[in-house]
Structures are given as structure tokens and as C-alpha cells.
Design a protein around this nucleic acid. Structure first.
Length: 294
DNA sequence: CAATGGTCTCGTCAAGCCTA
DNA sequence: TAGGCTTGACGAGACCATTG
């Protein structure tokens, strides 16, 4: 075998190797494109491929809570105001998520104040409770009203729905974010299991609130409808937040792709120049050293 | 200045994906 | 496998530039 043919063989060997690599790469690309894209996943793959090893893009739950709180700074459309409930007046069901009795007490160093929470706050609260209770040792102070509680029990500390470390003055006109930070930072007394409560006014005109059982047989059609609409509200709120998050992620993904295009274009240009130089070198030496038959 | 068209952002729905 | 999460698609509304 002469040098020419061995060079050709070597070259074709390189080419076939390159073809295989290209095919593998193309197959990977096809696979990535054919499946439903996950920006996080693709970004992770790109990061690990480039060796830059970005930090885990999956936000931890604490960050989720933080971002939730941050987003609430700007996203709560209506001022979700917490008001001290000094009376037993019922607010409209669609506005009201939690209602407790009028008593205020100081138990175990915690300031217990019955509050009305608007639906906005309650929606955020529900997801925040889920997040924070799953992670840090810091637990929210939320005391669930026992099943079958009556208005008498509301006067007891155990009937308090939310507890804060703050003074009463601090509880007035809190924003959703402030409320959440209060809830998250407070030590745990008990964890609420469901945000849904049945509220009705008995003949003695006292407020009675019992914990609702999803699918339970004590609920009227109206209560079931209310519960369904609350569930829907929470689902929409979560999806709204998810869509927002998804769009941010998509923007990051596109930015990353654009940067990658820049890098690859640069690399491509460099390789083309290198190839040109090598070709020149090759033809030059072929002339200079014909006896070497390179 | 009103009408129109383009672009952007947001909320919602629905379908697919993921995970406990 | 159910329930939650992710994301493409779509429509609505706001904003801006252009045009008659």
C-alpha cells in the first residue's frame, strides 16, 4: 500500500468516524426535537455537554417559596388585605376563605388573632404551606379547626386559624407577602390540612365554622359548588404562576441558544480557517518535498 | 385624530410528561 | 396510576407606529 492510498484510507476512516459521530449527534437532535421539549432538561443537557456544569436549575423548595413571595410583591392584583375580624359579620363566600371568632388571646407567647383572609391570600397561602411544610424545619403556625367544631370552640385558642408573632397593630393592612412571611417564620403549632371550611350562621347568630370534608356527605350543593370554585381558583392561580415561570424559562432557553449559536459560529469559522491553513501547508510541502510524496 | 396593523404580555385550556 | 407539573396554542387587551 503506497502513502497515497494509506492517506486515503486514513482520511476515509476519519470521515466514516466523523459520519458516525454526526449520525449520533443528528439522532440525538432528532430525539430531542421529536419529544416534547423541557427547557430545564435541554438546558441541563446543554450545560453538561459543554462542561460548564451550571448549578442545578431545578429550584429547591425554599427558593420556590422565596420566588412565590417575590412574585407576590408585584403580582397580587388586588390588595389582599388582612383585616381583624372584630365582629361576626360574614363576608361574601367568594371573598372569604377563613373566618374565625372575635376573640384575641396570647397563648404560649404567640399572639392569636382571628382573621379574615381574602381568596388571593388563601390561594397563595395554600401553596406556600405545602412548600414550606415539606422542606425547612420552620413550620407555619396554622391551627386547624377540629372537625365538628362549634362556635364555643372558636373562643378557644385551638380554634384560631392563623397565629402570628406580631402585635395586633402589625396585623392590620398586611400585604399578602407580609402575611406569608409571618406565616412562614412562625413556629409550628399545627398544620392545616385543608383550606376549605364550611361557614354558616346558626339561629343564635354566632359564627360556626367546621372543617369541610372533600366529598363528604355533610355538604350542601351550594357548599360543593363553592368548594369546586375554590379548587378551580387555586388551580388557575397555580397555572398562572406556572405559565409565568415557563415563559421566564423559555426566555432563558432562547438566550442560551442564541449564545450557543454565537459560540458555534465562532468555532466553525476557526475550523474553516484552520482547514484552509492546513490545505495551504499541504500543497506547499507537496511542492517543496515531492520525494516525500505527502 | 381615528382607524388599522403589528407586537408583546398575560391568563387559560388541554395534552403530554413526571414522580411518588 | 393518580395527581401535579410543564408547555404549546389560543384569545384578549395594552401599547405603539403608521396611515389617511
Amino acid at each position: 500500500m503506497d502513502n497515497n492510498s494509506s492517506n486515503n484510507l486514513l482520511q476515509s476512516s476519519f470521515e466514516s468516524q466523523e459520519d458516525t459521530d454526526n449520525e449520533k449527534r443528528a439522532a440525538l437532535q432528532r430525539e430531542q426535537l421529536s419529544r416534547r421539549p423541557s427547557y430545564r432538561k435541554i438546558l441541563d443537557e446543554l450545560a453538561s455537554e459543554s462542561g460548564t456544569g451550571t448549578a442545578d436549575t431545578k429550584p429547591d423548595k425554599l427558593n420556590l417559596v422565596a420566588s412565590l413571595n417575590n412574585s407576590q410583591n408585584t403580582q397580587v392584583s388586588q390588595p389582599a388585605v388582612i383585616t381583624i375580624n372584630n365582629s361576626t359579620n360574614l363576608v361574601p363566600p367568594h371573598q372569604q376563605q377563613i373566618l374565625a371568632g372575635p376573640q384575641t388571646s396570647n397563648v404560649g407567647g404567640l399572639f392569636h388573632t382571628p382573621v379574615i383572609v381574602t381568596s388571593d391570600v388563601m390561594s397563595v397561602l395554600a401553596s406556600t404551606l405545602t412548600n414550606s411544610s415539606n422542606t425547612s424545619g420552620v413550620q407555619p403556625t396554622v391551627v386547624a379547626l377540629p372537625q365538628g367544631s362549634n362556635s364555643d370552640q372558636l373562643s378557644q385558642p385551638a380554634a384560631t386559624i392563623m397565629s402570628f408573632n406580631n402585635s395586633q397593630a402589625d396585623l392590620q393592612n398586611l400585604s399578602a407577602t407580609q402575611v406569608l412571611s409571618n406565616v412562614i417564620q412562625a413556629p409550628r403549632t399545627a398544620l392545616i390540612t385543608t383550606p376549605y371550611y364550611n361557614i354558616h350562621r346558626p339561629p343564635n347568630n354566632q359564627v360556626v365554622m367546621t372543617q369541610g370534608i372533600p366529598g363528604g356527605n355533610h355538604q350542601t350543593p351550594q357548599q360543593l359548588a363553592d368548594e369546586a370554585s375554590k379548587k378551580r381558583e387555586i388551580r388557575l392561580m397555580k397555572n398562572r404562576e406556572a405559565a409565568r415561570h415557563c415563559r421566564v424559562k423559555k426566555k432563558e432557553y432562547l438566550k442560551c441558544l442564541e449564545e450557543r449559536v454565537q459560540i458555534l459560529e465562532g468555532q466553525n469559522k476557526k475550523l474553516i480557517d484552520e482547514l484552509k491553513a492546513l490545505k495551504e501547508f499541504y500543497t506547499q510541502h507537496k511542492k517543496d518535498y515531492p520525494e516525500h510524496n505527502i
